[in-house]
Nucleic acid binder design. Structure first.
Lengths: 336, 336
DNA sequence: AATATAAATGGAAGCGTATTCATAGTCAAG
DNA sequence: CTTGACTATGAATACGCTTCCATTTATATT
């Protein structure tokens, strides 16, 4: 490995000077600048960022703890986050949530001296929050939030839940199933709460068999869908907590001869790119914004990092985005 | 930041000993081990991996240079790669190919002292190859390969191209369009070559207007589809070079009233998860393997890294996977 | 031409860790 | 006891870089 010392020797200057042409070239004579640059080229010198990080206490990298990519929502946020970060000089260490080693992921991240953390993988009452705080590294949550607040960007999930449910109610549906992930997560909890509220407002009882909690992976969703449709008293409409779940369900339903929306209406949530596809035309609730949640969050995170560098400290970033219903073609009035 | 020195002071031992309980605890008395562990807990000490990396010359992180996630193929490989790497103690720095700063990505990666590089983003004659070589860091290509060979995992793209085209020919199609990305990429080139060969074998002329080169993003594909179908002499079948392209096309086609496969047959390539979806049921060509290309490649890469550590050097890994046609429901016999 | 001032350069310390080498401590065998 | 052979520990150095401080060199001022 060729180091700045080697370059120095070759150029006949001190190692300090080499460092200077890298960091403050204006403090170096044109002549020596040229000498040093020439030596660098010849030796194919590349500064060792590890060493630089050690002294500057800045790694120019951030950790992303994302939900799994089988959910297109996280595909979109991951792309946005990585690209935005890169454009601003940051590297992204990506980690995906997994049922098994929840904690080990964090241990991993903690030791890696990142400049900031952006995460969707957090439970509403996750004890990991306190550990994150003690790290003294800026972190922001997107999509999901934590009980203790902190910095976060979310959509108004409760309202979204109401919007979706109201839509189905207006279409005369009364037997509406809700299917989503575990309620220990802020998003699923709020979306479910919104569903319940909307039903209660209309005086429609929340029936326990209409609440389906599932793992969000494909296999589990298909299984739950099968169970749901095997019931005597099938729902006439389904509120899927994410587009991802809705799309998996549609796979099963179509494969088993159900027509959508004729046989069953489906509304979901997130308004991911796939939901526009003509093969789905999913009615869904999403934010009004152009940017996705990840894109907004990464912008803030980088600002937080810069703030910390300057020794400043701004207010908490706590954004709850407006949502609206994107009515497409998976919902239909129930004829009674 | 609490360092091993602080721990040492607190535990009343030397920094060396602290380092030892971390790395070779068996060389330390139970008594002092306990003391040190206690001090670590109390101070919430976390070893600084940056410093460790500097001396050990090992970062435990690898760089992934991936194609864009709007292609589901790369979604699947990215998930596999990140998860596999994590399970083997490696962090993954993710970068996505972008039309603009091709080179800057590499510069970025080069300086970051990764232990290995796994990439799909490379052109067949990419000059970046030489730079990668000089880095003296193990790297492996997946999906796409380079003229100079090196380590790579691909599917048999030429054969796949022939399979897909033969399928359409057998279904009596003669006016078959090929649509794919720039031919400077090994995958597109080979898939196109296979297409041409298959046509020529049957004595069907390759017509230039049936070769459509496009950017692989959604907007561009839609535009090209529109142009293609506006022609007087529309193709009766389309060979899309990736499932991603095929799915975009289907969006446009369905939206514009075309029935698939009645009005136009579509075959594509990669056999991504989405192609199974009942809303698509895409006829496609993919590998026979269970694992995706990324998963296979990352396994090899980690092995290469370990080999290098041991000072060994094995043979080049050059795998070209068998492919087969997955016949589903987007292709249909042409009635003449 | 002499001095004051600014600009350019180099020496050395330090970032937090691992590791080599020397030293002090322990214990068994004689 | 004494010697020898380990074992447990610590001091010192190195990893490649930035940065503070001291020194030299160039430039401006009188």
């Amino acid at each position: 490995m060729v180091s700045s010392k080697d370059v120095a020797k070759r150029a006949g200057v001190s190692q300090t000077t080499v460092s200077r042409v890298l960091n403050t070239p204006e403090k170096v004579t044109d002549k020596t600048l040229e000498k040093v640059n020439k030596a660098m080229k010849e030796l194919e010198y590349r500064p060792n960022l590890i060493a630089r990080s050690l002294v500057k206490k800045k790694t120019h990298s951030i950790a992303l703890l994302s939900g799994p990519l089988h959910n297109p929502f996280y595909v979109e946020t991951t792309m946005s986050i990585v690209n935005y970060a890169k454009a601003h000089g940051f590297n992204v260490n990506v980690h995906f949530e997994s049922n098994t080693d929840q904690l080990s992921v964090y241990e991993d991240v903690f030791k890696h001296q990142v400049d900031g953390i952006i995460l969707s993988s957090i439970l509403y009452e996750d004890p990991i929050y306190q550990e994150l705080q003690q790290l003294n590294v800026p972190f922001i949550m997107f999509n999901r939030k934590h009980k203790e607040k902190g910095h976060y960007i979310e959509m108004d999930n409760a309202k979204a839940g109401r919007l979706a449910t109201d839509h189905l109610l207006e279409l005369n549906h009364r037997n509406i199933a809700w299917i989503g992930g575990p309620l220990v997560t802020s998003t699923f909890l709020a979306r479910y709460t919104g569903y319940c509220e909307a039903l209660e407002n209309k005086g429609v009882p929340v029936r326990s068999e209409n609440t389906v909690i599932t793992d969000t992976g494909k296999a589990a969703v298909l299984e739950k869908t099968k169970e749901l449709m095997a019931r005597k008293n099938k729902p006439s409409a389904i509120f899927a907590a994410t587009d991802s779940i809705a799309i998996y369900m549609m796979d099963w339903l179509l494969k088993n001869g159900y027509k959508i929306p004729e046989d069953v209406s489906i509304v979901s949530m997130d308004n991911v790119g796939w939901s526009h596809h003509h093969a789905f035309q999913l009615t869904t609730v999403g934010t009004v914004e152009q940017k996705n949640l990840g894109e907004i969050a990464i912008g803030h995170l980088i600002e937080l990092i810069h703030q910390k560098e300057r020794g400043e400290s701004g207010p908490f970033i706590q954004q709850t985005l407006e949502t609206r219903l994107f009515r497409r073609h998976t919902t239909k009035r129930k004829e009674s």
